[in-house]
Amino acid sequence: MTAFLQVEGLQKYFPIGKNFLGRPTQVVKAVEDVSFATERGKTLGIVGESGCGKSTTARLLMDLSPPDQGRITIDGQAYGKGAGRKPITALRKRMQMVFQDSYASLNARLTIEESIAFGPKINGASDREASTKARDLLDRVGLDPDNFIRRYPHELSGGQRQRVNIARALAIDPEIVILDEAVSALDKSVQAQVLNLLADLKAEFDLTYLFISHDLNVVQYVSDDVIVMYLGQVVESGPAQAMYSTPAHPYTAALLSALPALHPKDRKTRAPLEGDPPNPISPPSGCRFHPRCPFAEPMCAETVPPLADIGGGRHVACHMRVPGSGYPEVRPIVTVAPSPTA
């Protein structure tokens, strides 16, 4: 049985610097052996700090940069280069993307209508059909078509532009929408409007979301399942509520306890982690998290922990969770008390 969207062994190394033969001298291991799956109608959240490879993963899925390795299937149909795979253009009809920078992702010389109608026209719709589609979608994302359809991107506010980007992503009736930090640049009051809109659209068009964000609270709020990435690798995956209440990987636990307090009496007294995330050009050996991990043992620097099944649909890449891994003791999963809401 395969899931609706299945991604296996996705990998991307970016070469940096070349020697006199034109061979790369160093590589950034941006995404390494990333696999995940999600069912139709669900939201999969991807969290992690900057440089963890979450945005690169999204770009690899859309083939905006071609993956070195990996297999992407939707409903069992594989896409990409290779025998038995449909071309990427076919994948893009089923999967669309909304980016963080609402201004840079719209063509400044096209009106809102032209931007939204572009996709349908390329895919064979007549001018009239495409125009009707653009008006319908603008209305659906909460912008008055008569007022907005002839405007240019610079005439819109950030929140309005992001609504246009969402409308454009939906214009060719995709089944999957990748939201790459789509609400991160918006002010809180506008962010709430867009999150509500995304929830409505998902129900109405039976969409599947890949929701990429660094904001853990927002990811928990929108996601059914979550994967946590660190330096190009998945360190933990599983149902959102279980992961947030009992994080299995020390990094997930640290991310959650690094969230600012909601009441002055709950102020943090110490930071869960020291230092910055390391440079992905020369990531640490073994478990990439081991230099910052409070539980690290010598073996963590030597052996790469596999992404092990810990039951309940959860997977974690940590020696400490795997009996027989050689880690001195298998520790119980730490329970984080739910923070009191303000």
Binding site: N217, V218, S245, L259, S339, T341
Partner: peptide, 11 residues
């Protein structure tokens, strides 16, 4: 409104 628009943990 600002507080209501903020996403809290465990919402």
């Amino acid at each position: 409104g600002l507080l209501g628009a903020t996403v809290y943990p465990n919402m």
